[in-house]
Amino acid sequence: MTLTRETAINAVLFVGLLIAALIAYLLDEPFIITMATKVAIFSIAGIGLNLALGYGGLVSFGHAAFFGFGGYVAGILANHALNNTLVFSWPIEMAGTNSMLMIWPVAIFLSALVALLIGVLSLRTSGVYFIMITLAFAQMIYYFAISWPAYGGEDGLPTYIRNSFPGLNTLNPIEFFLICFVWLGVSLMLCSAIVHSRFGLALQGTRQNEQRVTSVGIDPFRVKLVAFVISGGITGLAGTLYTDLNRFVSPSVFSWQTSGEIMVFVILGGVARLFGPLAGAALFITMEFTLGGMTEHWQLWLGLLLLFVVLYTPGGLIGVLTSGRGKDV
């Protein structure tokens, strides 16, 4: 790979996040470390969405469903471990767990499964129907989470402590950051591999011209569905990390605002750019922090900025920094 400007910016973003967290650690600023952790987690959620939305052209407004599902898996398993109760007793007995190594695969698998179910139905449609339907399904799960009392209902579900990882003290902010940072790196590598693979070729071909892909013997529905499932799994993983960060999960993770924000990370950073979600999430969190410090009504300014980005800067932040062209395909 040649060292393009975009590659350089990507490296600066990635290493910059690590350095920011380490400096904050040295200066004993746990709040900054938490912000960096948030950036890492939201980036992972965005990377998941970007695979579907950016590379596959599947404008999902329902990724909160997967983010929230991952989050609740972590919350529910931890809660059962805490209370020493069974998650379910039939057909086999399933106990709760506090181990991240157990929680992650379960969360990824279940989020992917939800993505499979939602995908099978919503991928029968396209365009604006797809946007509305993914939004509607996420909203359905949101209302379910609110009205199902077993896991806290509207009040949410506290986990009190962070889940554990062998050899680390996850309650120490910098150690938990490092876990999320490693996952960010893994997600980026995974996404990069997929995008450049045979499957990635078919996926991007499907985005551009389904008829063409069909006529060379590839079923576009299957390609889109698999991309949607992988996408849901990655975003679900981000959800579990988010529960651990907050030591709490509530139905708001399923809300349409969550879907909107994940989408904002992707578009703010630059659609179908590998590091776009990282750039977008970093910008978003920084703005939330700085604007939030200046005015109570920071969302107003965020909205205006977003409008400006959409109307005048196609290509997002990375697009602006690399002056437009040169998509990473």
């Binding site: 591999a193 997929i194 450049h196 693979s197 045979r198 499957f199 990635g200 070729l201 078919a202 071909g205 063409r212 892909v213 060379v216 013997g217 590839i218 299957r222 390609v223 698999v226």
Partner: peptide, 18 residues
């Protein structure tokens, strides 16, 4: 390449760069 891939029926490979 997409056509060669389609004819080969090996689309669901996720890691090797094309």
């Amino acid at each position: 390449m997409l056509a060669v891939q389609g004819a080969s029926a090996h689309t669901f490979r996720f890691f090797k760069p094309v």
